[in-house]
């Protein structure tokens, strides 16, 4: 089994929530709490020497990249290198410097191109000797508006298996206001567990379910 010292500490603030390498979670939240949560976790990954790979279908790569750099505590220059973004939203990239952008996929329908970009990103991590990668997907809700549920499920299942093989951490955002309970209950089975994010208090809190050895209590996430 996974060496606990390799675990991914989910976010910066205590208490530590350690997830085994290769874990993928469905992050259910009202917008925009899910992305905030994922961005803060990816930023924590950058701060602790790892890389971040983002698939964005919601906002342009530039916006996501700026948010990530702002959320990381390392200087913006140092934070740029570890960020890779697969942009599949339909507008422009919104970046002057496209060094972060791995591939511009023209539509979230194009899952094959997304898969190729995913593979290329990990090929590149290998070449660079990067073995700590947090992957964020923003968001499944947008992809579900383009692609039917079964296809999205198979897409998620295959990405989560890929992330497990890579020993990465995967966080997939789903806007829980936008789908019925049955859709969420179906989709969550493509993942190792679920992270429910609650933004009703002053700070975000999260509850992880479905993972052995990980607390299922509500935990506060401080910025």
């Amino acid at each position: 089994m996974t060496d606990p010292t390799d675990a991914y500490d989910l976010f910066a603030s205590p208490p530590a929530v350690d997830l085994p390498t290769g874990t993928s979670l469905l992050v259910t939240a009202a917008q925009p709490a899910g992305r905030e949560f994922i961005v803060s976790s990816l930023a924590h990954g950058i701060d602790t020497g790892g890389d971040a790979l983002v698939l964005t279908a919601d906002d342009p790569a530039g916006t996501v990249g700026d948010e990530l750099r702002a959320a990381a505590t390392v200087p913006a220059d140092a934070a740029t290198d570890p960020i890779r973004i697969i942009d599949c939203q339909t507008d422009g990239l919104g970046v002057d410097d496209d060094s972060m952008v791995d591939r511009d996929v023209n539509t979230p329908r194009n899952l094959t191109d997304i898969g190729i970009a995913f593979k290329d990103a990990f090929d590149r991590f290998d070449r660079q000797g990067v073995d700590r990668v947090r992957f964020g997907l923003l968001s499944l809700s947008i992809i579900l508006s383009y692609v039917d549920q079964e296809t999205v499920y198979r897409f998620c299942q295959t990405l989560t298996r890929g992330l497990a093989n890579e020993g990465a951490l995967g966080l997939f955002a789903l806007n829980d206001n936008a789908h019925d309970e049955e859709t969420i209950a179906t989709l969550k089975r493509a993942f190792d567990g679920v992270a429910e994010v609650d933004a009703s208090g002053e700070e975000l809190s999260v509850r992880i379910t479905g993972l052995d050895g990980v607390t299922d209590d509500w935990v506060t996430v401080s910025a």
Partner: peptide
Amino acid sequence: IVRSIPDAA
């Protein structure tokens, strides 16, 4: 993995 991703297009 890439090949197993369903082709939505």
